[in-house]
Amino acid sequence: MLEQIMNSSNFDYLGRGLAAATMRHEVISNNIANVNTPNFKRSAVNFEDLLAKELHLDNDGRRLDMVRTHDRHLPMALPGKVHAVIEEDGTTTMRVDNNNVDIDIEMAGLAKNQLYYNAMTTELGSFINRMKGVITSGQS
Protein backbone atom coordinates (compact mmCIF):
# COMPACT_ATOMS: atom_id res chain seq x y z
CA MET A 1 0.00 0.00 0.00
CA LEU A 2 2.76 2.46 0.93
CA GLU A 3 4.56 1.70 -2.32
CA GLN A 4 1.41 2.53 -4.29
CA ILE A 5 1.11 5.87 -2.50
CA MET A 6 4.75 6.75 -3.04
CA ASN A 7 4.50 5.82 -6.74
CA SER A 8 1.23 7.68 -7.36
CA SER A 9 1.28 10.32 -10.08
CA ASN A 10 0.24 13.12 -7.67
CA PHE A 11 3.09 12.35 -5.32
CA ASP A 12 5.50 12.15 -8.26
CA TYR A 13 4.43 15.45 -9.85
CA LEU A 14 4.47 17.28 -6.53
CA GLY A 15 7.91 15.91 -5.67
CA ARG A 16 9.37 16.93 -9.03
CA GLY A 17 7.69 20.34 -8.73
CA LEU A 18 9.27 20.89 -5.33
CA ALA A 19 12.67 19.87 -6.66
CA ALA A 20 12.25 22.34 -9.54
CA ALA A 21 11.26 25.13 -7.15
CA THR A 22 14.29 24.42 -4.97
CA MET A 23 16.58 24.47 -8.00
CA ARG A 24 14.94 27.69 -9.24
CA HIS A 25 15.55 29.34 -5.86
CA GLU A 26 19.25 28.43 -6.05
CA VAL A 27 19.56 29.69 -9.63
CA ILE A 28 17.80 33.00 -8.89
CA SER A 29 19.96 33.46 -5.78
CA ASN A 30 23.06 32.90 -7.92
CA ASN A 31 21.81 35.46 -10.46
CA ILE A 32 21.25 38.01 -7.69
CA ALA A 33 24.68 37.32 -6.17
CA ASN A 34 26.28 38.02 -9.56
CA VAL A 35 24.32 41.15 -10.44
CA ASN A 36 27.56 43.19 -10.56
CA THR A 37 29.84 40.53 -12.05
CA PRO A 38 31.12 41.56 -15.50
CA ASN A 39 30.24 39.14 -18.33
CA PHE A 40 27.90 37.11 -16.10
CA LYS A 41 24.90 35.66 -17.91
CA ARG A 42 21.76 34.88 -15.96
CA SER A 43 20.27 31.42 -15.84
CA ALA A 44 16.70 30.21 -15.50
CA VAL A 45 15.04 26.91 -14.65
CA ASN A 46 12.71 25.27 -17.14
CA PHE A 47 10.31 22.70 -15.70
CA GLU A 48 6.69 23.62 -16.30
CA ASP A 49 7.04 23.67 -20.11
CA LEU A 50 8.77 20.30 -20.06
CA LEU A 51 6.10 18.86 -17.77
CA ALA A 52 3.34 20.13 -20.07
CA LYS A 53 5.02 18.32 -22.98
CA GLU A 54 5.28 15.16 -20.86
CA LEU A 55 1.56 15.39 -20.14
CA HIS A 56 0.81 16.25 -23.79
CA LEU A 57 -0.87 19.58 -22.96
CA ASP A 58 -1.33 22.47 -25.36
CA ASN A 59 -0.72 26.13 -24.45
CA ASP A 60 -4.22 26.41 -22.95
CA GLY A 61 -3.72 23.40 -20.67
CA ARG A 62 -5.93 21.07 -22.73
CA ARG A 63 -4.78 17.49 -23.19
CA LEU A 64 -3.62 16.59 -26.68
CA ASP A 65 -4.63 13.05 -27.58
CA MET A 66 -2.32 11.32 -30.01
CA VAL A 67 -3.57 8.54 -32.23
CA ARG A 68 -1.96 6.34 -34.84
CA THR A 69 -3.91 6.66 -38.06
CA HIS A 70 -2.20 3.76 -39.81
CA ASP A 71 -0.67 0.48 -38.63
CA ARG A 72 2.58 1.28 -40.40
CA HIS A 73 3.08 4.53 -38.51
CA LEU A 74 5.69 4.49 -35.79
CA PRO A 75 4.31 3.96 -32.29
CA MET A 76 4.12 7.05 -30.14
CA ALA A 77 6.60 6.63 -27.35
CA LEU A 78 5.80 8.47 -24.18
CA PRO A 79 8.73 10.55 -22.94
CA GLY A 80 10.37 9.66 -19.68
CA LYS A 81 9.81 11.64 -16.55
CA VAL A 82 11.16 15.15 -17.08
CA HIS A 83 13.12 17.03 -14.48
CA ALA A 84 14.03 20.68 -14.13
CA VAL A 85 16.76 21.96 -16.44
CA ILE A 86 18.99 25.01 -15.96
CA GLU A 87 19.22 27.15 -19.09
CA GLU A 88 21.66 30.05 -19.46
CA ASP A 89 20.43 33.17 -21.25
CA GLY A 90 23.41 34.18 -23.36
CA THR A 91 21.35 36.08 -25.92
CA THR A 92 20.82 39.35 -24.04
CA THR A 93 22.95 42.06 -22.47
CA MET A 94 21.66 44.62 -19.99
CA ARG A 95 24.76 46.77 -19.49
CA VAL A 96 28.09 47.65 -21.09
CA ASP A 97 29.88 45.05 -18.95
CA ASN A 98 27.89 42.28 -20.77
CA ASN A 99 25.96 41.31 -17.63
CA ASN A 100 22.27 40.57 -18.27
CA VAL A 101 20.89 40.35 -14.72
CA ASP A 102 17.98 42.70 -13.98
CA ILE A 103 17.65 42.81 -10.18
CA ASP A 104 13.95 43.77 -10.34
CA ILE A 105 13.09 40.79 -12.54
CA GLU A 106 15.11 38.45 -10.33
CA MET A 107 13.45 39.67 -7.12
CA ALA A 108 10.00 39.31 -8.68
CA GLY A 109 10.94 35.81 -9.84
CA LEU A 110 12.13 34.95 -6.34
CA ALA A 111 8.80 36.08 -4.83
CA LYS A 112 6.83 34.15 -7.46
CA ASN A 113 8.90 31.03 -6.85
CA GLN A 114 8.34 31.30 -3.09
CA LEU A 115 4.57 31.35 -3.64
CA TYR A 116 4.87 28.37 -5.99
CA TYR A 117 6.95 26.45 -3.45
CA ASN A 118 4.49 27.22 -0.64
CA ALA A 119 1.56 26.07 -2.79
CA MET A 120 3.36 22.84 -3.67
CA THR A 121 4.21 22.05 -0.03
CA THR A 122 0.63 22.78 1.02
CA GLU A 123 -0.73 20.48 -1.68
CA LEU A 124 1.78 17.74 -0.83
CA GLY A 125 0.85 17.96 2.86
CA SER A 126 -2.84 17.78 1.96
CA PHE A 127 -2.22 14.75 -0.27
CA ILE A 128 -0.34 12.96 2.51
CA ASN A 129 -3.10 13.77 5.03
CA ARG A 130 -5.75 12.40 2.65
CA MET A 131 -3.76 9.21 2.20
CA LYS A 132 -3.30 8.95 5.97
CA GLY A 133 -7.06 9.31 6.39
CA VAL A 134 -7.70 6.54 3.85
CA ILE A 135 -5.23 4.23 5.58
CA THR A 136 -6.56 4.80 9.10
CA SER A 137 -10.30 5.04 8.25
CA GLY A 138 -10.87 1.32 8.74
CA GLN A 139 -9.20 1.19 12.13
CA SER A 140 -11.02 1.50 15.48
Score class of each variant (00 low, 15 high):
Q4R: 14
I5Y: 14
I5T: 07
I5F: 08
M6I: 15
M6L: 11
M6G: 06
N7S: 12
N7Y: 14
F11Y: 11
D12M: 12
D12Y: 10
Y13R: 15
G15E: 04
R16T: 13
R16G: 09
G17H: 04
G17A: 08
L18D: 14
L18P: 07
A20Y: 09
A20P: 04
A21H: 07
A21V: 00
T22K: 12
E26R: 12
E26W: 01
N30E: 01
N30W: 03
N31A: 04
I32A: 01
A33L: 02
A33I: 03
V35E: 11
V35L: 13
V35Y: 09
N36E: 15
N36T: 13
T37C: 00
T37K: 04
P38E: 01
N39G: 00
N39E: 04
F40W: 04
S43G: 09
N46S: 11
F47M: 01
F47W: 07
E48H: 00
D49A: 08
L50C: 07
L50S: 08
L50W: 08
L51S: 01
A52D: 13
K53N: 09
E54A: 08
L55P: 00
H56C: 05
D60I: 10
G61I: 00
R62E: 11
R62C: 13
R62T: 11
L64H: 10
D65T: 08
D65K: 14
M66L: 12
V67I: 10
T69D: 06
T69S: 08
H70D: 15
D71L: 14
D71V: 12
R72N: 10
R72M: 14
P75H: 06
P75E: 03
A77W: 02
A77S: 04
A77D: 05
A77C: 05
L78I: 11
L78D: 14
G80E: 08
K81I: 13
K81V: 14
V82S: 03
V82T: 07
H83G: 14
I86E: 01
I86F: 00
E87A: 10
E87D: 13
E88W: 09
E88T: 14
T92F: 02
T93D: 13
M94S: 11
M94N: 14
M94P: 06
R95P: 05
R95I: 07
V96T: 14
V96E: 10
V96I: 09
V96C: 09
N99S: 12
N99G: 13
N99W: 09
N100L: 02
N100P: 03
N100W: 00
N100I: 02
V101K: 05
V101P: 02
I103H: 03
D104G: 09
I105E: 10
A108T: 05
A108K: 01
G109R: 04
A111N: 15
K112G: 00
L115M: 01
L115C: 04
L115I: 10
Y116F: 06
N118A: 15
N118Y: 11
A119E: 05
A119C: 01
M120S: 03
M120A: 00
T122M: 15
E123A: 15
E123W: 10
G125Q: 03
G125M: 03
S126Q: 12
F127H: 03
R130Y: 13
R130V: 08
M131S: 15
K132T: 03
G133W: 07
G133A: 06
G133M: 06
G133P: 04
G133C: 09
V134W: 14
V134I: 11
I135G: 05
I135Q: 08
T136V: 08
T136L: 04
Q139L: 11
